[in-house]
């Protein structure tokens, strides 16, 4: 069981790896749209040993799934370190804090604080959204629970307090671009220990973002994990380029995905060629990320494609993952 001794804030594996100055690698595990624990166990088995922690999404894209707290607890039992995600969309500060206490009691040690996608995108667009807090005040709250031993209201926690390694997200490609580095700094100030970015395909633009982040000295206050992910098809690349707000996929990437399957008749072989190219691009991106000053690791988002993570980790030279005592 991780504890917060030896000067660690939480004692989580991710914290230890980053503190040791190792290039970190995190992955993502999406809970199922049902109550089947076996799905989590299978995905955990695929990711275990290939990353320093796996994000367990919280009703991502506002679609109801098994709760991140339950799925993260199952991951703990399977020996995969979870990074539990928590959004502000579905719960107020009471529910969030009680879930945070419960998550810690269940052995979860990393918490990623998000505002959450608007419910319009999900399968319950008529729901009320909460947004009692935003991601910034959620970070402050989680830090307060850990460092000040106090609930959000100021009341002291008597007994064990939840000590999480606190994460946040930032999208370097969302607008207004010039404000994003400042907002990242704000998140560090609010309590973030690490940041995972949105998926990066436009490396020059990300470098520009990181230069400003480094100029502000923010990389010394917070570990920045660059978001990367393998594309499965040319269609997916095009969709991300044209339809997803805040995504920046250069035409060159789309072209590479299109070229990959060209001339192959067999449908299965054609799809496999595209997937292979997607993995290749992802590996190249990781290698580029390693060279960018201020980048402390990568967050590999292989959504509903967990099998790709071990391959990517292997090819990108991320294995074996370090074990820090």
């Amino acid at each position: 069981m991780a504890d917060a001794t030896n000067g660690y804030k939480s004692g989580s594996t991710l914290e230890k790896v980053l503190r040791a100055g190792q290039f970190a690698a995190t992955a993502e595990l999406g809970p199922p749209k049902n109550a089947d624990a076996e799905v989590i166990r299978k995905k955990a088995a695929l990711l275990k040993g290939y990353c320093d922690g796996a994000n367990i999404t919280d009703n991502q894209t506002a679609i109801v799934r098994m709760s991140s707290i339950a799925a993260a607890a199952i991951a703990v039992r399977e020996g995969l370190e979870p990074i539990m995600q928590m959004t502000c969309r579905d719960r107020n500060r009471l529910a969030m804090q009680s879930d945070i206490l419960g998550a810690y009691a269940l052995g979860i040690r990393n918490l990623l604080c998000l505002s959450g996608d608007h419910q319009q995108f999900g399968n319950h667009p008529t729901a009320k959204n909460v947004y009692d807090l935003d991601s910034m005040s959620l970070l402050q709250m989680v830090k307060g629970l850990r460092d000040d031993n106090r609930f959000q209201c100021g009341e002291e926690i008597k007994g064990v307090n939840p000590r999480f390694f606190i994460g946040a997200a930032e999208n370097p490609f969302a607008d207004p671009f010039e404000f994003r580095p400042y907002r990242l700094a704000k998140k560090a100030q609010a309590g973030a220990d690490f940041i995972q970015t949105q998926l990066i395909y436009n490396v020059p633009k990300f470098k520009e973002f990181m230069k400003r982040v480094v100029d502000l000295g923010v990389h010394e206050k917070v570990y920045i994990l660059a978001g990367v992910g393998p594309l499965k098809t040319a269609g997916a690349a095009k969709y991300m380029r044209d339809q997803v707000p805040g995504m920046d996929v250069p035409d060159e990437i789309v072209k590479r995905m299109e070229e990959a399957g060209k001339g192959i008749e067999d449908k299965k072989a054609k799809a496999a060629a595209a997937r292979e190219e997607g993995i290749k691009i992802c590996v190249e991106l990781i290698q580029q990320m390693r060279e960018i000053p201020g980048v402390a690791g990568v967050h590999i988002m292989a959504i509903e494609w967990e099998e790709a993570v071990p391959i990517i980790a292997e090819k990108a030279g991320l294995l074996p993952r370090p074990v820090i005592q």
Binding site: C88, Q120, N129, Y131, M136, S137, Q198
Partner: peptide, 28 residues
Amino acid sequence: SKSLLNGPCGGSHDGKCEISTPDRVVEC
């Protein structure tokens, strides 16, 4: 759309809120 006090969230694009559709453009 989220009543954030420390925005903009990652869904802000070209001055538009992430909930915008071709029929309904919402300013960020």
